[in-house]
Simulated scan of single mutants.
Amino acid sequence: MDGEDRRERSIGMTVMTEASRAGEETGGRGNGLLRWTVALLVLEPLLMYAAFFVLSSSINWPSSLDEPASVNLPLVAEQRGAMVLGYGAYLEYSLLILPLSVLLYFALGRRGASSPLLAVAAAVGAISALARALGIVRWLFLMPVLAEVYLDPATSGATREAVEVAYTSFNEYAGGVGELLGVALTGAAWVGLTSVAMLRSGRFPRWLGWLGLLAAALLLPGLVSVAGLEVGSLFAVVGGNVLLIWMLALAVVLGLRLRRIRRGA
């Protein structure tokens, strides 16, 4: 009997040791995901503010988006380096929303947020990232070519008119995909669903969830332009800034939790 007891204790100790190791490995992976999530939440506002600073000082962005080809194309040619730098940062910011939305699904889901809502939010965030990118790339590849043709002294009047038509058409199409679909619709839905999941979990500061819902609400008015109504860029600018503040606040909250985990370990 003593031998059997010893064998049972030995088996029990082995099982407990393996379970402990598995828990440590899982916790290590979870902490790694959390670190990457915090890093992206901090990087995103830095990229967006860098893009805004470069583009606003060089081509008067975002007000210049409403200007005709005769105003914008000379600016594109004159400030091509700054424009590529600024829109490159904006493109990186937009594409990083895709991995960020996936990381938030795991990081928040591990901490009690509603997984079904976060799964939908992650999918919508991925669509938002791709739609934003499709809207931005025109400034990096198409517009410089149009500017060269438009400003070429050998270009005829008819060709310049055709360039103006192409400029307006691509702006309307890409602006609809990037700004309406990517920012006002799916971007707002991504932030809103993530914030609702945090509020429902009860394990995150409530002000953080409400701040995210405010950002989503301020991004939505851009959709009314589909009906031919203009609300101006005020809502987009304010909503974008509130969104970036929400990202930084979420980074702080998750960073503090990661610090507590490390101290506990």
Rank of each mutant, 00 (worst) to 15 (best):
L65G: 03
F52Y: 12
L193E: 13
V191H: 00
W246H: 13
A184H: 10
R260A: 15
R257T: 10
R260V: 13
P205W: 12
W36E: 08
V231A: 13
L248C: 12
A39M: 15
M247C: 15
V120Y: 06
T17C: 03
L219K: 08
Y87F: 14
G222P: 07
G240E: 03
L185T: 02
R260C: 03
V120W: 12
G222L: 06
V242G: 02
G23D: 15
A122M: 03
V84S: 12
P68L: 05
V102A: 14
T14Y: 07
E148G: 11
A166L: 12
S64Y: 02
G112W: 02
L65E: 05
W61G: 00
L248N: 11
G3T: 12
A147D: 10
G30P: 05
W207A: 14
T14A: 11
A51G: 10
L250Y: 05
R29W: 12
A113N: 10
I261P: 09
V226H: 07
G112T: 12
I59F: 00
F141V: 13
L214E: 04
L55I: 00
V54N: 00
M13Q: 13
V76P: 00
D66W: 08
S57G: 05
L140D: 01
D66L: 14
G175H: 01
M16Y: 07
V54I: 14
F106C: 02
M83K: 06
P205T: 15
L46G: 07
P221F: 09
W207P: 06
A39E: 10
G212A: 10
G86L: 00
P62F: 00
M83T: 09
V252P: 10
L85C: 08
L41N: 03
A265R: 15
L118I: 03
V54L: 09
S94N: 00
V196N: 09
N171D: 06
S63C: 00
D2F: 06
A249K: 09
A89V: 02
A197H: 02
V252D: 06
E18I: 13
L104T: 01
G175R: 08
L151M: 09
G264A: 12
A251L: 00
D152V: 06
G135L: 01
L65W: 04
W210T: 15
